[in-house]
Structure formats: structure tokens, C-alpha cells
């Protein structure tokens, strides 16, 4: 989770990712941010988050992003 937090803080240093639980639905992250985040996560974790994973529920919180990364590392 630390590595994800580092990526998120680098992209949006103005956001407190430990506190915010409504990052997309609350309009804090927009689609530009999410594309940047996906690109960084794909590179950092050698995973493939697809465009169809661009759902608010996957990016609304640090925890949700962590779960998405985990699901891509260990596909069911």
C-alpha cells in the first residue's frame, strides 16, 4: 500500500489519500488523474488495468485502488 500511496501522492500532492473515501464520486480525481494513476500502477506492479476498469468504485479510496491492484496481480 505504501508504494501505491507514493504514486498517488506524486500525481496529486494536494489530496490526502489516507482520509478521502470518495475520490472519484466526490470529483477529487478526474479522468485525467485516473489515466495517470493507471499508467503508473501498470508500470510499478507490472499489471494491466484496462479501460473497462475505469469505474469510480475502483478508485474512490486508497483501499479500493489497493484491492484493484491486488486483483490484477492475483486474477481469480
Amino acid at each position: 500500500m505504501e508504494k501505491i500511496l507514493e504514486i498517488l501522492n506524486d500525481i496529486r500532492p494536494d489530496v490526502d489519500f489516507n482520509e478521502e473515501m470518495n475520490l472519484v464520486d466526490g470529483g477529487i480525481l478526474d479522468s485525467f488523474d485516473i489515466v495517470s494513476i493507471i499508467s503508473e500502477l501498470n508500470d510499478a506492479f507490472d499489471i494491466h488495468i484496462r479501460v473497462t476498469d475505469l469505474k469510480p468504485e475502483n478508485f474512490n479510496s486508497l483501499e479500493a485502488i489497493g484491492q484493484l491492484v491486488e486483483s490484477k496481480q492475483n486474477p481469480a
Binding site: S31, F32, I34, R50, T52, L54
Partner: peptide
């Protein structure tokens, strides 16, 4: 949308 894609798509 394959892994090594070159894309500018950013719509939710």
C-alpha cells in the same frame, strides 16, 4: 486495450 497500448483515452 492491450497492455503495451499507446492511447490518449481517459473517459470514465
Amino acid at each position: 486495450n492491450n497492455k503495451e497500448i499507446v492511447s490518449n483515452f481517459y473517459m470514465l
